[in-house]
Amino acid sequence: MILAALLMVVQVAAQDPRLERLDPGTRSAVSAVVDSARGDGLPVEPLIQRALEGATKGAPGARIVAAVRRLTVDLGAARLALGTNASAAELEAGVAALRAGATPEILAHLRDLRRPPLTMALSVLADLVASGVPADSAAAAVLALAPHARDADLVEFRRAVERDIALGAPPGAATSIRVNAGAENVFSGTGTNPGTVPRPRRP
């Protein structure tokens, strides 16, 4: 009894003060999920941010707790695919890629192809899908560019595809044509020859 009370005190003391914006019931449930994730070695900051997003947006407590639980599960899946050395930022980008429709195998393949950090590559994959590019096309494009493209190149690639889509191109076609153009003219792998590196777009 005393031990249980003591544990409760310790748990309350360990709660992130930012979670005080949640109502007590939601706060308690979210804290439990956060503690469990911490115990599993998962990054907890994304979980806290998701809970705070829900609180600021006035979402019901049950929806906030469900969102945080779902994110915990997905962070675990991303870590399984990307490996235990993956950073918090990589895991969160990995979650976005998985939710966009990339398979764990694609994430693992990307990890094998590209030197870390993988954050931008994963993020670009997810953003392309959000722009309407089919998940398999987006994955194929990112995997094709991954070995040699710099992060800035990947961002420029995504912008170019988005611009083509905005101008009326079918998303899948826009992606494959940009990849082919990149393979021929842009991402030739040297990364140092001004003739082959894409003109850097201003940041």
Binding site: M120, V124, D151
Partner: peptide, 8 residues
């Protein structure tokens, strides 16, 4: 928004 860590 994504902030890259390599060559960005």
């Amino acid at each position: 928004v994504t902030v890259g860590g390599r060559g960005s």
